[in-house]
Design a protein around this nucleic acid. Sequence first.
DNA 1: ATAACGATATGATAATTATCATAACATGAT
DNA 2: ATCATGTTATGATAATTATCATATCGTTAT
Lengths: 228, 228
Amino acid sequence: MDPSCNCELCELRELLVANLEGDHLDIICSGKVEKEYKQGESIIKEGTLIKDFTYLKSGLVKLFRTDSSGKEQIITIAKPFDYVSLLSVFSNNRYNYSVTALEDSVTCHLKMNDIRTMAEDNGTLALSLLKNMSRVADKIILDTLEIRKKHLRGRVAYLLIYFSQNVYYSPEFDLPLTRKEMAEFVGMTTENVIRSLSELRRDGILKIYGKTIQIINMDTLKSIAEFG
Amino acid sequence: MDPSCNCELCELRELLVANLEGDHLDIICSGKVEKEYKQGESIIKEGTLIKDFTYLKSGLVKLFRTDSSGKEQIITIAKPFDYVSLLSVFSNNRYNYSVTALEDSVTCHLKMNDIRTMAEDNGTLALSLLKNMSRVADKIILDTLEIRKKHLRGRVAYLLIYFSQNVYYSPEFDLPLTRKEMAEFVGMTTENVIRSLSELRRDGILKIYGKTIQIINMDTLKSIAEFG
DNA sequence: ATAACGATATGATAATTATCATAACATGAT
DNA sequence: ATCATGTTATGATAATTATCATATCGTTAT
C-alpha cells in the first residue's frame, strides 16, 4: 500500500471510507491508485471505458463535453472531495464527458467493480453514494437553470462570485479559467465575457490584472448576478 | 393492501421491487399509496418536506421550479416508470422543484424512510437506485446542454422530436405542453415558440391543428434540430 | 348567448448577443 | 532575440432574440 495515501488518514475518509471496515477497507486501500496531474493535463476522455471511480484530492478540474464541431461546453467545476467520475458511472460504461485539470491536481482512483461490490454489501456506503450523487447532480442542474436566466454580465458576475465564495474564499483570486473557458461554462462568446469583465471594471466593481481578479464591491456584484 | 396495486404484478416491479423479498416486499406493499391526479393538478410543491419516494405509473408530468418573480423553468418531463421525486430526495429534506400532471396521471408513493432502510439492507436495490438516479440526472444535464447550443427553431424542433420519438412514438401527437410551457422548457419566450412553430408549418415541415402536431418531414426537422 | 379569460398568433420595434475585424500583449519554441 | 501562437481586448456591424402591441380563437363561467 502506498504509504503516502493511507486510507485511515485520508481526507476522503469521512465521505467514502467512513463506513468501511476490515476486508472492505483493505480492498479499497490495496486497489486504489493516486495520480498527479499538471495544469492542463487530461484526466478523463469522453468516450473511454469507465473503470475507475475517481475522486479529487487536491486541485481543481473541469468537466466538459465536446460537440461534433469540436466546441466544448463546461458542465461543472469540481473541487477537492467532489466526485469527479460521478455523473454517469453507475448508468453508463463509457464517460460522456471529459475531465481536465485546471490547476495541478491529485486524484484518487478506486476500481468501479470494488465500489459496486461494496455498495452492494454495505448499505451505509450505498446511501452515502446516493446522497453525494444526488447532491452533485442537483447542484449542476440548478446552476445551469440559474445561469440560463441571466444576461451576460449577470452570468460573469455569478461565476466570479462562485470562485470567490466557493473555491478561493477570498475577494481576490486567480481565475482558473481562460475567458474562453468562462464562456464555455456560462454559454456565451469569449468576446462577450471579456466585454462584461471590462464593463465591471469600468464601473469600479472589479479590478483586473490579467488572470487576477479583485472584487471591490461584492454587494453590487451580487445584485448584478441576481438581477442584471 | 390495496388489491388494485399488487406489487408482485406492478409494472414497477422490474425497476424497483425486483430484488425485494419477504419482509421488504411486505413493507413496500403495505406502506405504499397510489394516487390519481387530473391534468393540471399539483403533485409536488417546491419547498415542502420530502416524505415520499414517488414513482410515475401512468400519465406525464413536468418537473419545474419557480423563481422569485414567479416565472417557471421546466427541468424535465417525466414519463411512466421515471422516478418523479428523484433529484434531491437523497441529499435534501425539502423539494427544490415542483411536479405537476401534464396528463391524467397515477403515481405510486413509497415512504422515503422505507427506501432508505431497504437500500441500506439490500445492495442490489441500492445499486439499482444509483443506476437510475445516475441515468436520470445525466439525461437532464445533457439535454440542457444540448438545448443551450441551439437557436430558437432548433430548440422547438428538438422538443417536437422528443415527444414524437420518446413519448408518443408517432409522427402525430397532441402536445402535452402549452406554448408557454414549451418556452419554459427550452428557455425562450412564448411568442418565439409560436413563431418557430409557424415557420416550421410555413416551410411544410409540420401541420398544426391547435395542440395536435403532425410531423410531415421528419428528416428536415431533425436537421433543423441538429444544425438550425 | 355572451362575457371574460387565457392561449394562440403576427407584426413592429427595441434590446441583446454574436460575428467579424483588428490590435496589443503574453508565452513558449526555435 | 525573434517568431509563432494563443489570449486578452475593443469597436463596428450583423444576427438573433425579447418586448410591446394587437387581434383572433377557444374555453369556461355566468
